[in-house]
């Protein structure tokens, strides 16, 4: 498609004049290197055994002990709980990085729009409902904390875009608490099971279902708060 003349549009940054590209010899070498990588990748993929000896069988075998019925959730929240905990922490570090760069921009929202207000009234409750549905679904079908958190975070983005602002009382420590809740509850439960003699994050099978749901609910709130706060573009 693209014509490179780029009739650039508002809201775009035009590239400065690019330096001249590589010469013909460099191009040829580049092409050969890329071809070598392609051949290497192709042989690697083609030499894979047709049925990969993955960990699927092990997961299925231990599924009853995990407290949930959906294998993906079992792996994410139980068998490989560490990974998910650290993922939550990574999201949180990203927000810290943004906050350390700049304070949030002053909120001069363009004029209020009645249509947007109506859209909000219709969509926001539905989005919260769907987030709850996805969270609940995680136990037995595709869904879970990240998906629910992203939908809930998108609700925050939509509300922010239509001019709703966090009340002054909430954007201090209550916001920080919401951001921390997921990691905090996850680690606390992980540590609490150690009191019973089990290793970190190894839930007793009898209560695993409830614990996972609690962790997921907290993580959903934290992920939503983090994503919405990232959208603010700075420390509130």
């Amino acid at each position: 498609m693209p014509d490179t003349r780029s009739t650039s549009v508002p809201g775009t940054v035009r590239a400065r004049a690019l330096p001249a590209g590589p010469g013909p010899t460099a191009r040829l070498i580049l092409l050969l290197l890329l071809a070598a990588v392609l051949v290497g990748l192709a042989t690697a993929v083609l030499s894979l055994p047709p049925v990969a000896p993955g960990l699927g069988a092990v997961v299925t075998e231990h599924l009853p002990a995990s407290g949930v019925e959906h294998p993906v959730t079992a792996v994410l929240l139980n068998f490989r709980g560490y990974d998910t905990l650290l993922e939550l922490a990574v999201l949180w570090l990203a927000l810290l990085a943004v906050w350390s760069l700049t304070p949030a921009p002053l909120a001069h929202e363009p004029t209020a729009n009645p249509m947007l207000a109506a859209l909000n009234q219709l969509l926001a409750p539905l989005m919260i409902l769907v987030a709850g549905y996805l969270l609940w679904n995680g136990g037995h079908a595709p869904g879970g904390a990240f998906q629910a958190g992203a939908v809930l975070g998108a609700t925050g983005v939509l509300l922010h875009l239509s001019g709703r602002r966090l009340p002054r009382a909430v954007d201090g420590w209550p916001l920080r608490l919401a951001l921390l809740l997921g990691v905090a509850l996850f680690s606390l439960i992980g540590l609490a099971v150690m009191a019973g003699g089990a290793p970190f994050l190894t839930y007793p099978p009898a209560s695993a279902g409830g614990l996972i749901l609690a962790i997921e609910a907290a993580a959903t709130l934290s992920i939503a708060a983090t994503l919405a706060a990232l959208f603010l573009g700075g420390r509130p």
Binding site: L119, V151, L161
Partner: peptide, 12 residues
């Protein structure tokens, strides 16, 4: 989810 979130990009 796509249907639910379709409006957000255009609003932004």
């Amino acid at each position: 989810v796509f249907a639910l979130l379709a409006a957000i990009t255009v609003v932004a």
